[in-house]
């Protein structure tokens, strides 16, 4: 499982990075990178101020 970040919605604030329990996310200037540590837990999806994140099921 993993997530998709809609870069057209994302405001690159990094709130998702701060709550990611596995450290799978990284804010690189103006986009979010997701690595293979992502478990698809969905915490980032919940915290996103703009709703840019979807969990792939």
């Amino acid at each position: 499982m993993s997530i998709s970040v809609n870069k057209y919605i994302c405001g690159y604030c990094g709130a998702c990075v701060g709550v990611c329990p596995t450290g799978a996310l990284e804010l690189v200037e103006t986009w979010i990178e997701v690595d293979n540590k992502c478990t698809g837990c969905g915490i980032c999806q919940k915290i996103c101020p703009l709703g840019a994140i979807e969990v792939n099921r």
């Binding site: 990094g14 709130a15 990075v17 701060g18 709550v19 990611c20 329990p21 450290g23 996310l25 990284e26 804010l27 915490i43 919940k46 915290i47």
Partner: peptide, 17 residues
Amino acid sequence: MESKVGRWAGIETAVKP
């Protein structure tokens, strides 16, 4: 807020929602 430096050193900084 999106700090990774602490985590790389083994300091737990992840914040609960």
